[in-house]
Nucleic acid binder design. Structure first.
Length: 754
DNA sequence: TACTAAGCTCTTTTT
DNA sequence: GAGCTTAGTA
């Protein structure tokens, strides 16, 4: 095709064909680094240029960040019209639709979105109320079961009619799981709340039960595009399919080799079977990798070639060969951290690179610690994505809970969280009574509060409940007259939350206070932001942030080394990438070792990690690592053996040879649990004080009476006294700045290598 | 009711 | 190691 509008000049021939084929079903198989986002961007621009209004286009992306960036790029081509695109994650787009249509399915317009913590907490409450053993009915496990059901579109009603599920439950000793499921759904409904999965399921139900609503959106979305299609689940697939059935202008983009979300119900079959759904499908394959050196491209192909379940495609590149892939062995996780930090420091100076050109990728969030410490010591700025984000912090969740309760008084989880925080003499017993009364009378807790005086059971707590009710009611009356920021500020003050944190002069307290101020500023910004047309109510703010992840939060300084899990690195690229913790049982994860599909998914994950790198790739593993406070030996990952060695630079013989760590005789002389002791014991304070973070490393070894130590948060101090109590030692330390503190020191099972 | 110390349990990955 | 629960005390 040689005829094309000039704005498509930037695409190569296949990319352009894919971008210009806008009518009818299209599947774009886009290998890593093949310019997938670019094609999608120009395709949307092309649709708009061909005369379709932006608000008739629906584009579903995997992250909010991807949506934002794509929108900005489209805007550059087509102008401000791009603002009207319906573009976002499945969750955020469907939350928007549900907000509009909520009343159809019996939810308030201002429904709450329960995050994972809220959901688990509710399950815990239900388990407790049913007098079940929460060791057996673990909230996390039940939540996963419920989530899996929802992703496969099994309702709680259908659940009890599927003998396989019931049988599996009773044989695992959890026959009442279906009851919990049903009760969980009922409680969410009563609280006017949806969990993450409900946002999808309820959309599906809405379209199924109300053909007129479906019709409206089928008409609205004349063009539908789905990015990262390999990571959609049944429910998402069904919704998209029904939305697209009117025009069949559906375009899915994905890469089967990068399907890494099966734990969320994503099915690689969606992409493998797409052809069956649409026989007149146009398929385009983008196989030219523009991102990485040929060494990296070829090495990654040699990895993914080991997988059986995949579509046929051949990735190639014209880029130069580049450096070989470095494989590095270190003795411990901490040393791995130092090695990476050192390497970044040297590379940065040698090649004049920015911090943001470097990324450290790992399998689990917990691995970030060692790298943070090492980078901090070398004064290299970094940013950790994932883990506990700003909105997960206690003080933020507390404040958010107040606001949630203002907007939706039935929000049970929010209420439980703050009814006695700050302390207002409403204890656990009273809360239990409230829950009992609510379920006995089949009303919400809020209704019980409203009429607290009518329930003799509540006894002397009535007065305190009354005060709380009056306070919350006064907040609610502001909804009609004040904006989001005015309400939030008033709530922060009146609830005494701000004051409580302000008066807490501990280091933690000060930072909590700062965080709360930051939240208030964020709300202010939201209120004043006029770049999009959405209404600026408190309820919109709350729904927005419920779907925000850590990756979405920007902070002024952007030149930082990036640290994240491989999962969240999907779609990103960096000049230099370190894939760390390549150890058997960690990556591939222990849980996936015994079954082929899971191991194949781990391999795809490895593929994703490796293909993030543009110029240089370093793979590293440690021969020992801390786990639950124990130092355990580690073996190199099998994946290191799977890469064709001609692409590698290994400095120490075969990757999987000679593990340094030799397990020694166990349980000799150190009592319970103290195996593997070789060198000397090292004192590590734990519980209240985190050693690694707070003590300068040179001081962790010898905390003795009379010694001067340096603590990162409390500064310099002198050890006044050491007390022994079994496994633990306490040290009373007089700090110059903050006075006397008692720190608990625990003997860690640390081994010293030579 | 609130606070602290000791004890128990868990580990993928995310919207 | 870290977060959370329980038991014990003020």
């Amino acid at each position: 095709m040689s005829d094309h509008p000039p704005y498509l000049d930037q695409l190569n021939e296949t990319q352009r064909e894919a971008a210009m084929c806008i009518n009818g079903p299209v599947m774009i198989i886009a290998g890593a680094g093949s310019g997938k986002t670019r094609v999608l961007t120009y395709r949307i621009a092309h649709i708009i240029r061909q005369g379709t209004d932006a608000f008739n286009i629906l584009a579903l992306t995997f992250t909010n960040k991807a949506a934002r960036e794509m929108k900005a790029r489209i805007e550059k081509v087509v102008g401000p019209e791009a603002k009207n695109l319906w573009m976002g994650t499945f969750h955020s787009v469907f939350a928007k639709i549900l907000r509009i249509e909520a009343e159809r399915i019996g939810f308030p317009k201002d429904f709450t979105i329960y995050d994972t913590d809220d959901a688990k907490s509710l399950i815990k409450t239900i388990v407790k109320e049913m007098n079940l053993d929460d060791k057996l009915y673990k909230p996390g496990l039940i939540y996963n079961r419920i989530s899996n059901c929802k992703n496969s579109l099994i309702t709680s009603k259908e659940y009890i009619s599927i003998p396989e599920l019931l049988e599996a439950d009773s044989s695992s000793g959890r026959p009442l799981l279906s009851k919990i499921f049903a009760s969980y759904q009922a409680r969410c409904f009563k609280a006017g709340a949806m969990d993450f999965d409900d946002l999808l399921v309820n959309t599906y139900q809405l379209f199924k039960r109300y053909p007129d609503v479906l019709y409206k959106y089928q008409h609205k979305f004349k063009y539908i595009m789905v990015d990262e299609y390999q990571d959609t689940n049944l429910c998402q697939y069904m919704i998209v399919k029904s939305l697209a059935s009117m025009y069949e202008n559906i375009c899915v983009v994905g890469d089967d080799s990068q399907s890494i979300y099966s734990f969320r119900g994503a099915s690689i079959q969606n992409i493998l079977n797409f052809e069956k759904d649409y026989p007149d499908l146009h398929v385009f394959k983008l196989e030219h990798n523009y991102r990485s050196t040929s060494n990296i491209v070829n090495a990654s192909s040699s990895i993914i070639a080991k997988n059986k379940e995949k579509l046929d495609k051949k990735i190639f590149t014209n880029n130069q060969e580049g450096e070989k892939i470095k494989v590095v062995r270190t003795l411990s996780d901490n040393e791995e951290g130092r090695m990476v930090a050192q390497s970044i420091f040297e590379e940065k100076n040698q090649k004049q690179l920015a911090n943001a050109d470097f990324a450290i990728l790992y399998r689990t969030n917990a691995q970030s610690r060692a790298f943070e410490e090492a980078l901090r010591k070398m004064n290299i700025p970094y940013r950790v994505y994932g883990g506990t984000s700003f909105y997960q912090r206690k003080e933020i969740k507390d404040m958010i809970s107040y606001l949630r309760l203002v907007v939706n008084p039935n929000d049970e989880e929010a209420l439980k969280r703050i009814i006695n925080y700050p302390a207002r003499k409403i204890g656990a017993t009273t809360i239990d009574k409230l829950l009992v009364l609510a379920s006995e009378n089949n009303v919400g807790i809020w209704d019980i509060l409203k009429n607290a005086h009518q329930y003799p059971l509540l006894g002397s707590a009535v007065a305190h409940l009354r005060d709380f009710y009056i306070m919350m009611s006064s907040f609610q009356t502001m909804l009609t007259s004040k904006n989001a920021y005015e309400i939030a500020e008033y709530v922060a003050k009146q609830s005494t939350l701000l004051k409580t944190l302000y008066e807490d002069k501990t280091v933690e307290g000060v930072s909590k206070h700062e965080n709360l101020i930051e939240l208030l500023n964020a709300i202010k910004e939201f209120t004043e932001d006029d770049t999009n047309e959405n209404e600026k109510t408190l309820s919109v703010f709350l729904q927005d942030i419920a779907l925000l992840t850590d990756a979405d939060k920007e902070d002024g300084i952007t030149d930082k080394v990036v640290m994240m899990t491989i999962h969240s690195s999907k779609g990103l690229e960096f000049k230099h990438v370190y894939v760390v913790g390549l150890e058997e049982n960690l990556f591939p994860s222990q849980l996936s070792l015994n079954s082929r599909p899971e191991l194949e998914e781990e391999r795809r994950l490895f593929y994703v990690a490796v293909t993030r790198a543009e110029e240089k790739l370093t793979l590293s593993f440690a021969t020992s690592r801390f786990k639950y406070g124990n130092l355990i030996p580690c073996e190199p990952s099998r994946f290191l053996d799977e890469i064709d060695s001609k692409y590698l630079e290994i400095s120490y013989g075969n990757a999987r040879q000679e593990p340094m760590f030799q397990e020694k005789e166990k349980d000799k002389g150190f009592g319970k649990g103290y195996g593997m002791m070789v060198g000397k014991q090292v004192a590590r304070p734990t519980p209240q004080i985190k050693v690694s973070e707070n003590f300068k490393e040179s001081n962790t070894a010898d905390i003795q009476e009379g010694n001067t130590i340096e603590h990162q948060r409390f500064g310099m101090g002198k050890v006044v006294k050491l007390q022994d109590s079994g496994d633990n030692k306490k040290a009373i330390i007089e700090f110059d700045e903050v006075g006397q503190k008692t720190l608990v020191l625990k003997f860690a099972k640390l081994m010293i290598h030579h």
